[in-house]
Amino acid sequence: MANQDPQPEVYSVSSTFAPSATSGTTQTTNVTTSQANNEEVRIYAIQVDIQSETFAALSPLTATTCDFSLTITVGPNNVPSQPIRLRPIWSAESNAMYFTSPILVLFQQPLQVTVTNNQALAAGAGNGRIVTVNFQSDLSIQKVACAPSATDYPRSPMGM
């Protein structure tokens, strides 16, 4: 439920991969948007951070075994339709990727985030990884187009 219209939202997803995690390991997180039936969420950008499972910092320029992919599922489909490689975003100065058009999440559509490890992690403390992805979004009340009349009745889907 929006406190204001529109309302900024930042959804944080942290996925932890233990040391020795095999290539292809996935972590899936369901994001609860708490939106009402007349509200929609638009996701404009993602921010990425990768650190070791012991909370030690990693340098994007020198760290090894930091190859992860991100899949965003909205309702039954993936949006974007293909997985996104996270390391190029993490290595960027802005640390963020802005979508060319926002991802739309409607009422009752599950928003699911899957992070995939593309490279086997080494054994031993400090070789695990925590991948944090922030989704910069807003939650807003859906706008209804009105017929050009004095009554301002909502326009029907048939265009009448």
């Binding site: 406190n3 939202e9 930042v10 944080s12 921010q47 650190q51 802005s94 922030n134």
Partner: peptide, 20 residues
Amino acid sequence: VPSQTFAVRPTWISGTRTLI
């Protein structure tokens, strides 16, 4: 507002250190 708790480290490690 935002409705959920969010991590600040991704913002801190960015060049601008600013979340807009």
